[in-house]
Write a protein that binds this DNA or RNA. Sequence first.
DNA 1: TTAGGGTTAG
Length: 457
Amino acid sequence: MTCRFSIRLWNICIASLCKARLLKKAEAVIIDGIRIGYLPDVVTYNTLVAAYCRFVGVDEAYLVLSRMREAGVKPDVITYNSLIAGAARHSLPSRSLDFFEEMLKIGIDPNVWSYNTLMHCLFKSGYPEVAYKFFLDMISKNVHPSPFTYNTLLNGLCKSGHARNALKLLRSLERRGFSAEIVTYNTIIDGLCKAGMYGAAKRILTEIGESSHSPNAITYTTIMKCCFRSGKFKQGLEVFAAMMDKGYTSDVFGYCTIISALIKMGMIVEAHSCTDEMLKNGIGLDMACYNTLIYMYCKEGKMSTAFQVLNEVVEAGLESDEYTHSILVDGLCKTGSVDGAYKYLERMEARGFNSNLVAYNSLLDGLCKVGKLDAALELFNKMQVKDSFTYASLLHGLCKAGRFRLASKHMRTCLREGISVLASAQRAVVSGLRSSGLKRDAVKLRAAIRTARILRC
DNA sequence: TTAGGGTTAG
């Protein structure tokens, strides 16, 4: 009895070390324990598997599973749930599925937690149909969905562009006795806002007021962001003030949202005050927040300070991401250093970073604006993915250089592929064709634009 | 294991 109690304490000690990310220390405690006769059990190994998944990687966690087997300890559903969650955290849907299948193969029955995690991973990775298939699978196997399952399903539907269906599903679930939680409400509000269904989002907010739940900081941040996204800056600021008045403490998400909006409104002084307040409140900065600060300095034209913040990112042990690079490339272009932006992107690519669409769009726009059209066209041809931003910059650049025939050709590509083009760019191409004597081309293009508009309706 | 934040065209 005493011995079992000691092993329990030993496992608690290992779990504490793992929680503090002290994995080597945890391993050393295990070795010391074995020396004095303690044998790691399934709890010990599961703790290690979860910690390796969280702080190291899925492959390393799987090696722990091999060690577990070698030691004659059988993995259980918790072991596999940790592995599935680890794969989900690293956005590895195929690994998640592999673990799920392996679990079935060795005779471990997945539980509701296994399904929830797998579904979340699949939704997050852009496989909503496969995720939904597993929802049906769990029902067919009599694994009862939990509120967590429904929240995951609703969130997955919203994130994959099916907010309307998510709302319908919520209503149907409510009719069958499901009681929405604050997570459910926040999920649906965010989905509806992102789909532009503001009226429906507002009705859900009213429902929260009528329910036994209270809005939390996430509700406020979601509403605030919704206001900013729809151009209602004043209302967004009011939501932030209301949140603070009600005694909620804003976290890094809230501050990030508000600072970014202030920068966009040109309220740099206020953005700085808000940043100071955030730092004074001891809010830990994450990469998204550092990106907002870098964005602030770029907008002020203080590129050297922006790069200083980038150094702080490295010192903080964080890794810059695609947002960082896009913001800096755009900042360099807008402060007149298009060459610097080009070189920066080249350096990033040499370091193995895959350039993203936004960074390329910013550079393309920068090149067009300084009249380096050939370089812009070279970049345009190199780009694998293009969107309405790409074409807007290119069309304006081509029109500015009087190359209306080429602009017209690209305009037609947009119409054919359903890429929306700014009305100003459309006008520039049509009037450019007309003024340069290509009247028939102008008429034809205008007709094509009208047809495309009708077909879209 | 579920909810919110950060970048580009005019």
